[in-house]
Computed example of a mutant assay.
Amino acid sequence: MTSGDPNLSVIMSERRQLINLAYRLLGSLADAEDVVQETYARWYAMSREQQEAIKSPGAWLTTVASRICLDLLGSARARREKYVGEWIPEPVPDQAELTKPTDPADRVTLDESINMAFLVVLESMTPAERVTFILHDVFRYPFPEVATIVGRTPAACRQLATSARRRLRNAEATAAPAAPPADRAAIVRNFKQAWEAKDIKALISVLDPSATAIGDGGGLATAALHPVEGGEMVARYFVDLAERAAGLTLVERTVNGQPGLVVMDNDQTAAVLAFDITANHITHIWAIRNPEKLRPWQA
């Protein structure tokens, strides 16, 4: 890449779109960055004549990045089988809350398509379903374009999108209505205060009776290897954590566009907690402790 390249500004202007797309497809910011780097490497591996023959560089980059993601998703299931404990999508911060914000081109746009509950449902989809759904329903690519990317017919892509939507509806059908944003923030604050006070009764009051807590240490940090289920069990689990890990500080932060908590050990981020809140109670807690997934939070 040189400053004399007339395509440079056009090509690099696509970076944020590619980061946003790859993160939603993979649930990992680190993997998304690798995908974007590989996509640009393939662009600049072509001759100037080959580049100029491409009518829409942006569409070419999206196609290449999506196909790389599709391949990665295909092998992800095997990798997850070797993962120590539960695998949770990598949490992303609100850049406005960081002391050292990243380059705008590397920022993930915070909207409903990256909240943790949504990303977890995406994990249940097949690679083709996930890529088709994200490209069509989230990024609004028409089915004929999606078909060229995933190597299926437009009709097959419509079926994949329908199947993906069915998975989402099934997940939503078992949940109560989501709490309004202001209420979610207040509930997370109540959870924080109860946890700091080691107050089991107060914790139980903000947790749904069937609440589930899932930890992700990846074998690199201590975390529950299996989900903790039931409001009372979750409350007791967090009180036990507080008693065993004195000196930690809890900070209210935005996690994947939703109210969440960051656990600080001195100046280091020890964990990031994302919540799913419905009917004014916490139904799911996702606690990410794997340090490899906490890089963006160490700023």
Rank of each mutant, 00 (worst) to 15 (best):
P57K: 12
R80T: 07
V92F: 12
W87V: 00
P57N: 12
Y40P: 00
I88F: 01
W87Y: 05
W43N: 10
A41L: 07
T99E: 04
K100M: 01
L61E: 08
D94E: 12
K82Q: 15
T99F: 02
R79G: 00
R42Y: 06
S66D: 03
L98A: 07
Y44S: 04
Y83M: 04
Y40N: 03
E97K: 06
W43K: 13
R80M: 07
Q51C: 05
V84N: 01
T39W: 09
T63S: 14
G74Y: 06
C69S: 14
I54H: 13
W60L: 06
L98T: 04
M46S: 06
V36A: 08
S47L: 03
T63E: 15
R80F: 00
A45I: 07
W60Q: 03
E86M: 09
Y40H: 08
G58F: 08
T39M: 13
E49K: 13
G74L: 03
E52S: 15
I68Y: 05
W87P: 00
Y40M: 08
D34C: 10
P89Y: 00
P93M: 09
K82Y: 01
Q50H: 03
P101F: 03
D71W: 07
E86I: 00
W60F: 13
G85D: 01
G74Q: 06
S75H: 06
G85I: 02
Q95F: 05
L70H: 09
W60R: 01
I68R: 14
S75M: 07
S56G: 01
Q95V: 11
R48K: 14
I88E: 01
V35M: 07
R80K: 12
D94K: 14
A45D: 15
W60G: 03
E86V: 01
L73V: 04
G58K: 13
E49L: 10
D71N: 12
P101M: 01
Q95W: 10
R42K: 15
I88Q: 06
R77W: 08
E81R: 15
P91R: 10
Y40V: 01
S66T: 00
E38Y: 13
V36Q: 13
Q50V: 04
